[in-house]
């Protein structure tokens, strides 16, 4: 296709108003076809979620309609009563927030050590941490469950069924990626910077907090988004490690959508409400993710 474009096309355009890299027409047509199809594929479920949440019940239980027969905000009011959505929400917020904060703090120190120091076991640590990414969750689900129960029996520290236990679990899920990405990011910050700070009398921690961290904000934001999204969306451990009090949105919503008689408009409304915080946060901060990845991981 674009291969057949005459070789002279691009240079000729330079004499006009475009750079030599300006694409030929066939490329532009291809671009709009492909991007159009991708837009439809990506946007369809989002459209269904948004319109479905505003439809009256008869619209979502009968044959699918592209245009709602009427609009109603009832589903948004009903979701808080049909299931204890508020409690799920609070639980998810505490768990994902806690996991994010802890994960970022732990990852910053670990990544700083790996990036700035050469020490025995550095490579072993990096490889081990990264390889935990490939562990099937199912392999350590039950052992972890047993460990948490036993820790509770011996020390009285309630990990099973508590929010703390899930925070602990989730923060390690995002840790490998966070460390890996932050190492890359810290590596891109000149070491002379924190050397200078240490010469000026900062300790190593001072250099990290006052010099390196401010320069690494995009990387840290990217890591925080990742950690929050990981914790907010996890299903497997949430379904085994929580009880009625600590149930998260993941478990609650799944139950909501798999009842015998599903109120699809309410389920769509709940899905939308649950998604808005993460999607909005992600979209607002995604440029940090791209810069963070560009500077750090993808090199």
């Amino acid at each position: 296709m674009p291969e057949t474009a005459p070789a002279g096309t691009a240079p000729r355009r330079t004499s006009g108003y475009r750079s030599p890299t300006a694409p030929p027409r066939s490329m532009i047509v291809t671009r709009w076809i492909v991007l159009g199809l991708l837009t439809a594929f990506t946007g369809l479920p989002i459209y269904v979620m948004a319109t479905g949440s505003l439809k009256p019940l008869r619209d979502v239980s009968g044959e699918f309609r592209w245009i709602p027969s009427g609009l109603t905000l009832r589903p948004y009011a009903d979701i808080w009563h049909t299931i204890p959505l508020g409690r799920y929400f609070l639980n998810s917020l505490i768990i994902a927030g806690g996991a994010t904060v802890c994960s970022v703090v732990v990852a910053v120190f670990a990544a700083y050590a790996v990036s700035r120091y050469s020490f025995r076991g550095r490579r072993v640590f990096t490889v081990t941490v990264l390889s935990t990414q490939m562990f099937p969750g199912i392999l350590f689900l039950l052992p972890l469950f047993l460990i948490y129960v036993n820790v509770g029996n011996y020390t009285g520290l309630q990990l099973y069924g508590s929010r703390g236990g899930l925070i602990l679990t989730y923060l390690t899920f995002s840790l490998p990626f966070s460390i890996w990405m932050l190492v890359g990011y810290f590596d891109s910050i000149p070491k002379g910077l924190d050397e200078a700070a240490q010469v000026d009398g900062c300790g190593p921690v001072g250099a990290l907090l006052r010099v390196v961290l401010p320069a690494a904000v995009p990387g840290i934001v990217a890591v925080a988004i990742y950690a929050f999204m990981t914790a907010w969306g996890e299903v497997l451990f949430a379904s085994v490690m929580t009880d009625d009090r600590t149930r998260t949105l993941a478990v609650g919503l799944q139950g909501y959508a798999t009842q015998n008689d599903v109120y699809w408009n309410q389920v769509m409304a709940a899905s939308l409400v649950v998604s808005v915080p993460v999607v909005a946060g992600f979209l607002l901060l995604q440029r940090y993710l791209v810069t963070g990845l560009t500077a750090g991981a993808v090199k």
């Binding site: 837009t39 479920p45 989002i46 949105l249 993941a250 769509m268 899905s271 649950v274 998604s275 992600f282």
Partner: peptide, 19 residues
């Protein structure tokens, strides 16, 4: 728009597709 599916929690995406 393209990044939205990645940002959506897994379970909401799956639930919408189930619908």
């Amino acid at each position: 728009l393209f990044l939205t599916p990645y940002a959506l929690p897994v379970y909401t995406s799956v639930i919408v597709w189930m619908f």
